[in-house]
């Protein structure tokens, strides 16, 4: 019934921990009419539900700007931190963000992951590939993207990158307009505190 269902036998327990609880161990007797019927082990119930998503104000603005190859963040009025992608709220203040900020399409790799298994919804991504948190110039937090045009093994924390956009004729209101992030060749950002992510104070782009 179970895979690898072996239990070590050097110290026999007082009671077999895998034995069915007493209340569930009474045999089930089937009526004669069902004798020989094949037990049903599972039923398949397909569920299809259609939802119309609402990205909300902040993400709508962000996606529209993407069509013009612009990246919008939003600033927290209380702390000045800039969030991207924006969600319309600052977790630092528990308040709506106060200002829309246009960010550069350059930044640095905060940390990264080299995926060596294919993922179901992106058959176009051939492993190994590198996904990374990119901290844009002017942003306070990292933002997920692919690092491209470099061997994954050569990607470094602190490496400077710039966005690689889709050709103009293929642009849509989608985060997918950024195909990935490629090295700029500038000197690496100096990371001093590996525990902490992003920037406490936003810098000017």
């Amino acid at each position: 019934m179970f895979e690898e269902d072996r239990v070590s036998a050097d110290r026999p327990a007082a009671r077999d921990p895998l034995a069915a609880p007493a209340a569930l161990s009474a045999p089930v007797t089937l009526p004669e009419a069902l004798a020989g019927a094949e037990p049903v082990e599972s039923v398949c119930t397909p569920i299809r539900m259609t939802y119309t998503y609402t990205p909300g104000r902040a993400l709508s603005r962000y996606l529209r700007a993407m069509a013009d190859k612009r990246i919008l963040g939003e600033r927290c009025g209380a702390t000045g931190q800039v969030f991207v992608p924006p969600r319309g709220v600052s977790p630092l203040a528990g308040a709506a963000t106060s200002e829309v900020v246009e960010l550069a399409d350059t930044g640095y790799v905060e940390s990264f992951n080299i995926t060596r298994v294919p993922i179901e919804r992106r058959p176009d991504l051939k492993p190994p590939y590198c996904s990374a948190w990119i901290v844009l110039d002017g942003a306070s937090v990292g933002f997920l993207g692919l690092v491209i045009n470099i061997a994954p093994e050569e990607v470094r924390i602190g490496m400077r990158v710039r966005a690689v956009w889709k050709p103009d004729e293929e642009l849509e209101t989608s985060a997918g307009n950024i195909l990935g992030w490629e090295p700029t060749g500038e000197p690496d950002e100096v990371i001093t505190d590996y525990e902490r992510i992003g920037r406490v104070e936003a810098s000017d782009p």
């Binding site: 609402t54 993400l59 709506a96």
Partner: peptide, 26 residues
């Protein structure tokens, strides 16, 4: 139907107002 705002966007003012109405913060 609240079609223009995400859940967190429409909840933030409600949360802030409830707390502010009794002079409290999170």
């Amino acid at each position: 139907a609240i079609s223009g705002e995400s859940e967190v966007e429409f909840m933030v003012p409600l949360m802030e107002q409830a707390k502010a109405s009794v002079g409290l913060t999170q």
